[in-house]
Design a protein around this nucleic acid. Sequence first.
DNA 1: AGAAGTCATTGCAACGTTGCACGACCTGTG
DNA 2: CACAGGTCGTGCAACGTTGCAATGACTTCT
Lengths: 344, 344
Amino acid sequence: MSSKTTVTKASGGNGRVTLKTIAEMTGLSLSTVSLSLRGGTTLKQETRDKVNEAARALGYVPDRAGVRLRTGKTNVIALVLDGAEDSIDFARSMIQGIGHAIRGTRYHLTVIPEFERHPTTETIGYILSNRTADGVIITHTGPRDPRVQMMIDADFPFVSHGRTEFYTPHAYHDFHSEEFAALAVKRLAERDCKDIMLVIGDDSTTNYQNIVTSYRKTAARAGIEARVLEGTAKLPPAEMRQVGLKLAAAPDRPDGIISDSEIRTIALVGGLAEGGVTLGREVSLIYKQTSGILPTLFPQMDSIREDIFGAGGELTRLLLRRIDGAPISELQSLAEPQPHWRSD
Amino acid sequence: MSSKTTVTKASGGNGRVTLKTIAEMTGLSLSTVSLSLRGGTTLKQETRDKVNEAARALGYVPDRAGVRLRTGKTNVIALVLDGAEDSIDFARSMIQGIGHAIRGTRYHLTVIPEFERHPTTETIGYILSNRTADGVIITHTGPRDPRVQMMIDADFPFVSHGRTEFYTPHAYHDFHSEEFAALAVKRLAERDCKDIMLVIGDDSTTNYQNIVTSYRKTAARAGIEARVLEGTAKLPPAEMRQVGLKLAAAPDRPDGIISDSEIRTIALVGGLAEGGVTLGREVSLIYKQTSGILPTLFPQMDSIREDIFGAGGELTRLLLRRIDGAPISELQSLAEPQPHWRSD
DNA sequence: AGAAGTCATTGCAACGTTGCACGACCTGTG
DNA sequence: CACAGGTCGTGCAACGTTGCAATGACTTCT
């Protein structure tokens, strides 16, 4: 309390290597060193070599606070982490993907978890007004996501995991959900399913709409009955299990099910199994898979994989190019679903 | 290339609210404003009120770069995220826990994913030499973890998720693994198991040793056979499934199993089920559970819960107090395992 | 020989913050 | 009235960086 011994001393002249250190070592001025390190072409080659060598020898790394204060550049990208629990290890995979992509760059990653059920603009507002990052990655994007609107208005670099319906184009990377739904329906049709059901969490993301639309269209084309059970995102696992149980016992039990979430698939399968349904025989189930662990548990089930690690990497690459001023038209990409059909 | 239009302008005098803005507004000097905002007691109450009001009205937030440059304080805590896949959604829960605990503080969270199988000191070295954070949280701590050694030597604030065997005490929060093992063994003994097996990933963490030791001791006391199947952390899910399959068919099949990992439990159960084992009857299985999703899939199995969200919060609170100079002896805590016994 | 270029380097100010040393003003005392 | 001792506020320098204007030393042209 009284004696605050930890003085939080400013990084004094003791250990830290700064431009000044290099200047003193080479006998050049501080400005020259700075200029040289940033690749000043007006400098003599000899000088540049000398500076580079000294910098390397001393292990110089530019001070982030100095750069940031002077230039406004934070060298930080922010990941706004949605609280949704649908994919196993979504956060880890995404973060690893991002981390892998910023290796060797000057960027750091800060993660801001969201707690609300629906994304708020609060976090984004904070980042924008305090210039706390150079760019933002958001996930679980909605069709008219207010966060996107906000960043478009502010002309702030960002990339969304998921598309939107805004007129103004923006950088995004997304899973090709339409293709996912189409693949799944076709697969079920091949397995002679006549009455299928899509179990999906209505979490107001764009993906939700894309999946439902494509699902209906593909089923209609294949001439099979296609129901939708939506709003399952709100259900806690135990209730999701009940859904499976009820479904198993229902007189109009579907013969094919498509599930868009790993977590909900687990609960659903638990309920179906308890209800006496043999998956892969009486009911075929196809689920979206992201973690690689579920196939070991459900080898008898088909799945379609979304690569979250890869998505994290791609989102980062897009964002960094966006920060560097690349045209938006080059910053939009889709990831193709990877079917994992059981081998029989 | 040629025309770099995005000038990355320094946050010019246009919008940004700084001490200067408040100074001009109140007619006080910049120094006074700064002093006042930091609670200078030598100032007249009237002055302090005036400053506070202006700051509030303008929505002043201290510039991180300015503070950091001047004081060396980054207001950042770094989470070194282990690449291990054992708990479902470990990363999300941990990050949410941390995020919740730093709400309302000035701290930001940066996450640094590790890719190597075993933790390297590289990341920590970088943080230490570049003063990139005020404190570090590490997870999956080993008994003589080199990262811990490094930070102890540098007297750098950190907290580990997991204990160590170092002589010098340091801040930690840990799951009470010994208690976990003891609870699990006793439960199996109550269920009349005579020959149990611990399936555990030898991932060189302290927890591993604690669990094995306590497991053996408790089993000996209960007078039952206790085997250990270790080294499962290295196995990919498909092979883990094979382990379950072989175990099911083995002549000396155990009648009780304890598993320390959610992910491996899933694969193991997949294999056991394929091998025709009815869990909860022929074999009792108890697993460490962190995500809340597995019980919906395996309602017939006992589990013991570790609260990762809570751990994230506790780790953060300990770290912040460590940064503020609290004595180490107050910065060590254990989390009690929470048994979830099936209700029959 | 003086003006006008080049070329290579440098000094200075500023970004926003803090902490120290000082200054201005008041009050009471000898 | 001079002066000590408060009370309350302020000027200045520094943290590490960058960008611009300016410098000095050469060369080249007229």
